[in-house]
Structure formats: C-alpha cells, structure tokens
C-alpha cells in the first residue's frame, strides 16, 4: 500500500526535523551573545555550518533521485527527509541571520532559500492533491489516448459534415484544424481556452441545427453529438495538462533557485572569509 512521504516511517524525519528546529531555537534563546545575535557569533557560525551542510545534502536529492535503486537508503527516505529537513533549514538559517537583513548578497541568499522552501512546500501540496484528481479526470485514459480519440472524432465529424451545408462544414473543419491543447505555461496552468474552436463549433452547429432542413437534420444532430463529445474530451485533456503543469511548474522555480542559492551561499561565505 502506498505510504505518503509525509507520514513515511511514522513521521521519523518529521521528528528529526522538529528536534533540530527546537534545539536551534532553544540554543538561540539561551545563548546570550555580547552583541546582537547574528551570523558572526559562535552560535551564528554553528547555524551557518549546519545550514550549509543541510543545504548541500538537500540538493543532493536531485542526484539521488536520478540513480534508481542505488544506495542503502530508499528514495522515499530521501524524499521524506528532504521535505522535513528542508523546512527546518528555514529555521536554522533564519536564526543564523539573527534577523539582520539588508540589500546585499547575504540577504539574497536568505531570500533565495525562502523561495526554494516555499516552492518546495507548493510542490509537496500539489503532489498530495493532484495525483488523485488526475486519476479521476483521466477515467482510465492517458493523454495520448484522449488525443487519439479527439483525432478520431474529428474524422467522424468531417464525414458527417460532408453532406451538410458549407457553414456547418466550415465550422467542423475549423474545429478540427484549430483546436489545441495546452499552449503557453499560463494557458497550461489555466486549463481552459476561452477561444476554443471546438466549443465554438459545438455551440454554433447546435444553433444552426435547430433551423436546418429536414434532409440534413439527422446528420446535423449526429454532428452536434460528436462535437459535444469532442468538447468534453478537450476539457478533460486540458484539465489533465493543467494538473500536470501544476505538478511540474514548481520544479522550474525550485531547482533553478536551488542552484542560485548555492551560488549565493558561495558568494556569502567568500565575502565573510575575505572580510573577516
């Protein structure tokens, strides 16, 4: 049975993360530096070192997940720990800053860390929510299957519309030639096409079919049925793409910002060491 990464091994990594966060907080409250808290106190240095080690380990997950079946630790362990220790990293690094922020590379590194963690939280949430919605939406069909079915419906529509007047034929043709799934990132995330050719064809053909002559009425009705079916399928396909985009898009923030974070931390450490 599938076990969520959040409850994996009875919250083992949540407990680790909570312990680390609480220990850091207690140390921060107990330690009374001569000067205001910050990265330059002994505890601040400790937080900084812990933060860098954690950050590099969390980044290593990107390598580990590509090496299937390697290592003694399961990928689920890595992921569960990645999630919880990633959250703890915010606590450790925030205490490292001593809440001293400014317009510099040091705060840039902190801001990037926050963005990485926030994007990670978003990733966890969509991974919890959308897989089941996707399954429900697909109704056992893959996106490829949906697209094949759409192509088949298009062909049927053209067959039927061949004997009907040019206006309807034109609408059907326009629908089959202009209906598109997905699109730009925003369109994928939106999951809808306000100018959908299929929806437009369906609505207009249905209107025309009401006034069409008796000799074409049967074909028109069949055509309306086909276009309706196609429209529903297009909606499902777009929703599928939307879910998939939502599950993917955070990684386009999480991963690049993680690398940017490492670069900023390198700059931060370099600055601290050079200007001791």
């Amino acid at each position: 049975m599938h076990e969520s990464i959040l409850v994996y091994r009875r919250y083992l990594y949540l407990k680790w993360a909570l312990f680390l966060a609480l220990a850091s907080l207690v140390a921060y409250l107990v330690y009374d530096p001569y000067d205001s808290p910050g990265g330059s106190t002994w505890l601040g240095y400790f937080y900084g070192i812990v933060g860098v080690v954690l950050m590099l380990w969390l980044a290593a997950f990107g390598i580990r997940k590509r090496i299937y079946g390697s290592g003694s630790v399961k990928l689920q362990d890595w992921l569960s720990a990645h999630v919880y220790l990633g959250l703890t990293l915010v606590v450790v690094v925030t205490l490292h800053t001593g809440f001293q922020l400014g317009w510099n590379v040091h705060t840039l590194a902190y801001a990037l860390l926050c963005l990485v963690v926030v994007s990670g939280i978003f990733g966890v949430l969509v991974y919890i929510r959308y897989p089941s919605l996707m399954t429900e939406n697909r109704r056992g069909q893959s996106l490829d299957g949906m697209m094949s079915e759409l192509a088949e419906i298009d062909r049927e529509c053209r067959d039927v519309s061949g004997g009907i007047n040019d206006e309807i034929n034109s609408l059907v043709l326009h629908s089959s030639q202009n209906t598109q799934l997905g699109g730009s990132i925003l369109r994928q995330l939106y999951g809808k096409d306000p100018h959908c050719a299929t929806s437009a064809a369906y609505n207009q053909v249905r209107e025309i079919a009401r006034t069409i002559g008796a000799e074409q009425a049967e074909a028109a009705r069949a055509l309306v049925g086909l276009l309706g079916k196609k429209r529903d399928l297009v909606v499902r396909a777009r929703r599928h793409i939307q879910y998939q985009a939502l599950m993917d898009v955070w990684l386009y923030i999480h991963v690049p910002l993680s690398f940017a974070l490492i670069a900023a931390v390198v700059s931060h450490v370099l600055a601290v060491l050079i200007y001791l």
């Binding site: 996106l143 697209m147 094949s148 759409l150 192509a151 088949e152 298009d154 062909r155 089959s176 030639q177 202009n178 209906t179 598109q180 799934l181 997905g182 699109g183 730009s184 990132i185 994928q188 793409i241 998939q244 985009a245 993917d248 898009v249 386009y252």
Partner: peptide, 13 residues
C-alpha cells in the same frame, strides 16, 4: 488529425 493535433498542442512545460 492526431499528428496535427499534437503539433498544435503544447502539453508540457
């Protein structure tokens, strides 16, 4: 039709 639909559609980021 299928190929054209695929060519028109961008289904991933």
């Amino acid at each position: 039709d299928l190929e054209e639909l695929r060519s028109r559609s961008t289904i991933s980021i």
